[in-house]
């Protein structure tokens, strides 16, 4: 197990595995998301209170979940890189940031569009759930800005990993904001006390898995790019690129 882990952490080995794995993640994710979207839009019954506006849940919850998931991947791999000095893990952290920012933006937008007809407001300044998710977006921006502002890759890795670790606090706040403070946002449905009919819940789980797989395939591609750039002067990259067929 340990040996396997070390092997995977070696950039050329990871690169090869990722090339094989990424398309499978992408294709299976696409199939699940297509099925879940069809279910969510046309098959699932409408909600007894919200009517058809409830269908927004099938894109809002997966993007909100990924916005936090991506951050945790970014922060933990940054920490692993800081502590054990594994080169690959900093590449993972750098690759996760833009995707996480994208899904955070998506979660904010879909939440706002959903809130307008249901809650009666696009946005509430001071609402803990909304504010902490907005801070999450700024954390991603800050992280990417910090990275691009430091030319030395090693220094950029360290500084950004510390920033990401500190920002974990905000992810915890996003998660518990609906319990700790009075927010317009309702509590947890998916993994907690909330109830949801099985024919509504199952498509949501399918969407969550599908989004995660799509995220995985996008993440792997960006990690490959990051690894390629960081290892651009090594022999394996040179051999791979100059070999017939390359390794895109």
């Amino acid at each position: 197990m340990w040996k396997w882990f070390h092997q995977l952490a070696s950039p050329p080995h990871f690169y090869r595995i990722s090339l094989i794995l990424a398309p499978w993640l992408g294709i299976s994710g696409l199939i699940l998301v297509a099925y879940g979207t069809w279910q969510g839009l046309f098959v699932v019954p409408m909600d007894y209170q919200q009517g058809d506006a409830f269908r927004i849940i099938y894109v809002h919850v997966p993007s909100a979940y990924l916005s936090m998931m991506a951050y945790m991947i970014m922060a933990t791999s940054g920490a692993i890189g800081l502590i054990w000095r594994i080169k690959l893990s900093h590449a993972v952290a750098a690759a996760a940031a833009p995707i996480g920012a994208g899904f955070t933006f998506l979660a904010l937008c879909t939440g706002s569009i959903w809130g307008r007809p249901m809650w009666g407001t696009w946005w509430e300044w001071g609402d803990p759930r909304m504010m902490s998710e907005l801070i999450l977006l700024f954390l991603y921006f800050g992280y990417m800005a910090l990275r691009s502002s430091i030319d030395d890759t090693t220094k950029a890795d360290k500084a950004s990993a510390v920033l990401a670790l500190v920002g974990i606090v905000n992810v915890v706040i996003v998660h518990f904001s609906v319990e700790w403070w009075s927010s317009l946002h309702q509590g947890q449905t998916v993994f907690k006390k909330g109830t949801m009919d099985a024919d509504m819940r199952i498509p949501l789980f399918i969407m969550l898995i599908g989004f995660t797989l799509l995220f995985g395939s996008m993440l792997l591609r960006r990690i490959r790019t990051e690894v390629l750039y960081r290892e651009r002067r090594t022999r394996w990259v040179r051999e791979m690129i100059l070999s017939p067929g390359g390794g895109a």
Binding site: W119, G120, G187, M200
Partner: peptide, 14 residues
């Protein structure tokens, strides 16, 4: 502004 809870169900169930 309206709040709603974390329960979702079809109208017939409700």
């Amino acid at each position: 502004m309206a709040k709603h809870d974390e329960d979702y169900m079809a109208p017939e169930v409700a």
